[in-house]
């Protein structure tokens, strides 16, 4: 890791912070399409992060991860969700379980928590890995927070994908970690399945407690 210059470190840091910023933005968007656009932006930033790591680490396979993030997550998924929202007539505005103020405060607390947890335990690791890991863990926790505070099936899926962006960010930052490409493919399959599920089973809104009664207007696909 000695060959990593100050410049490449700062660029990696900047891109990682962009992913985190998008994670924060996801928390307070009130309109569904805005949520989708923000998610696309986050995926774009993730693609840049993966490509930069591929360049810095001389690990060409990470370019594939970057390509998956760019094509699948930043383009196909937001587009498909956009289409689903229109097709299924899902409410365009999003309710949240907590007020935005509280959500943001919890978000900040989670970021502080990840920095406090990660930085001391990675004292021996290279700076590049340390900071990216702290950023990645923050993104993961923010994704979880989003899944908890949003009621709607689509926003929950977006929350899950934001969480997954954090996981991929962590995996690309871990120097020389094998199987990163396979893992991002596995996740893409998972996400594709979810979209498929929403579409075919017409899961529309309000999964407040993920409880049966909250499946508001279920229509079976073959009746």
């Amino acid at each position: 890791m000695a060959d990593i210059s100050q410049f490449s470190y700062e660029v990696a840091h900047l891109i990682g912070a962009t992913v985190l910023m998008a994670g924060f933005q996801l928390l307070y968007q009130r309109r569904l399409f805005a949520v989708l656009n923000t998610f696309a932006f986050q995926a774009l930033a993730l693609a840049a992060a993966a490509a930069w790591q591929a360049h810095v680490q001389h690990a060409p396979h990470l370019y594939i991860t970057a390509a998956i993030a760019l094509v699948f997550k930043a383009m196909i998924v937001p587009f498909a969700l956009h289409w689903l929202v229109e097709k299924l007539g899902i409410h365009r505005s999003v309710e949240t379980a907590m007020s935005i103020g509280w959500t943001m405060t919890s978000g900040v607390a989670l970021v502080a928590l990840s920095i406090l947890l990660v930085l001391p335990v990675t004292a021996n690791a290279a700076a590049l890995t340390r900071e990216s890991l702290a950023l990645a863990m923050s993104v993961i926790l923010l994704g979880l927070l989003m899944m908890i505070t949003r009621h709607n099936a689509v926003t929950q899926v977006v929350g899950f994908m934001a969480l997954e962006n954090g996981l991929i960010l962590a995996a690309v930052s871990a120097k020389g970690m094998p199987l990163v490409v396979e893992i991002s493919i596995a996740f893409s399959v998972l996400v594709a399945m979810t979209l498929f599920g929403i579409f075919f089973f017409r899961i529309r809104e309000r999964f407040e407690t993920l409880d049966l009664n909250d499946l508001e207007t279920y229509r079976g696909d073959r009746q």
């Binding site: 979880l144 962590a170 995996a171 599920g197 089973f201 899961i203 049966l212 499946l215």
Partner: peptide, 25 residues
């Protein structure tokens, strides 16, 4: 493909996806 089955599958899917996500971290 009953309503209950879809509901159960969805719940299983979301919870376990988050679970294995954390396991990956």
């Amino acid at each position: 493909r009953t309503r209950e089955a879809i509901e159960a599958a969805w719940k299983y899917f979301i919870l376990c996806s988050v679970g294995i996500g954390l396991a990956l971290f």
